[in-house]
């Protein structure tokens, strides 16, 4: 009996456990600092979610570990960077409307360009090696080299300073808790994307087919659905989300550089392993764990910040090898 309860409330138990663990740092710091760090962690987590969700769905549905996701992320940042350059007046204007106009334009450009790039990648390169894990990783790794080098050819090999829309800068001071404005924007974007993805997956037929495909690709094909079209579509969406993540992250960290994808790809992998392959909810939870714990630990024990995520990943792998949330298989 207890076993069935554990099983039925499995996911809820996991979330409750994580929530308790994440409250622990409160013992080590003043509550106001905790709140500030929590908002920073949530913002970082949401940005990681944008990257990781694409990796996770592509891995779940297509069984492709897409190494090129990091490069697509960097492409998103660079396309956004160029859009901001073109719309410099809007970016510098002291107007919320114009700032958001520039931001929206950058998002649309970045997502469109990178989604098309993702489609080309899937059609031309990845499709040739479906069913062979090793070659998939190798070939997407090759694609990463090419994509990153293309950034260096087009935008130059050096770092660039990413401009931030004027009204996005600065803080709010709510009851002495300092809240960075842009972080709130990041959290909102992440929540919005999560909601939209969940809605599509749960309520539309296309979403159902994708979820069914994560569980059993062959069966979805044998039911008359063109799985290859689905693959291309999902790859494009995943690439688009990576681009959004890249753009948002570059504004967050105030810079773009050709290699920026590799760092965040690594974070994304950790998130996917923690959250469970193919699960969007898992990606969100995993991303928030990584974002929050990184920020708490960076404050409490600065030298351990870089390693804490890997430690968490290893612990979770040891106690729950398939990740916190499992989708289907």
């Amino acid at each position: 009996m207890t076993e069935t309860i554990l099983k039925r409330w499995d996911n809820e138990l996991v979330i409750a456990g994580i929530a308790v663990l994440l409250l622990l740092p409160l013992f080590g710091m003043p509550p106001k600092t905790y709140l500030t760090l929590t908002i920073a962690g949530l913002a970082m987590g949401m940005l990681l979610f944008l990257v990781a969700s694409g990796v996770s769905i592509i891995l779940g549905l297509m069984d492709v570990l897409n190494f090129a996701h990091g490069a697509l992320f960097a492409w998103g940042a660079y396309v956004g960077f160029s859009t901001f350059k073109l719309l410099e007046k809007w970016v510098q204007a002291d107007s919320v409307l114009l700032n958001f106009g520039a931001f929206a334009a950058a998002i649309i450009c970045a997502m469109t360009v990178v989604a098309v790039l993702g489609m080309v990648l899937e059609r031309v390169i990845v499709r040739r090696v479906y069913g062979n894990h090793l070659f998939q990783i190798l070939i997407t790794f090759g694609a990463t080299i090419v994509l990153v080098e293309m950034i260096r050819v087009i935008w130059g090999p050096n770092d660039d300073v990413m401009s931030v829309p004027l009204t996005f800068q600065g803080n709010w001071d709510v009851f002495d808790v300092i809240i960075d404005r842009y972080r709130i924007i990041c959290i909102l974007i992440g929540a919005l994307v999560f909601g939209a993805v969940q809605l599509i997956l749960k309520k539309t037929k296309l979403g159902l087919i994708v979820r069914a495909g994560v569980e059993n690709r062959d069966m979805v094909q044998a039911m008359g659905h063109n799985i290859f079209l689905l693959f291309t579509g999902v790859f494009a969406v995943g690439a688009g989300l990576a681009a959004l993540g890249g753009l948002a992250m570059s504004i967050f960290s105030l810079q773009v550089y050709p290699d920026m994808g590799s760092t965040y790809l690594l974070f994304a992998f950790i998130v996917v392993i923690i959250g469970g392959l193919g699960s969007v909810t898992g990606s969100l939870v995993g991303a928030l764990i990584v974002g929050l714990s990184y920020n708490y630990v960076a404050y409490l024990v600065p030298w351990a910040a870089a390693g804490v995520n890997i430690i968490i990943m290893i612990i979770i792998l040891l106690i729950r090898p398939k990740g916190l949330f499992t989708a289907g298989k």
């Binding site: 159902l208 979820r211 569980e215 039911m223 289907g328």
Partner: peptide, 17 residues
């Protein structure tokens, strides 16, 4: 080839062409 995460209804939905 049951889609275990989906409800019975959703299984039929995916199947319907």
């Amino acid at each position: 080839g049951i889609f275990a995460d989906l409800t019975v209804e959703e299984n039929f939905k995916v199947a319907k062409l």
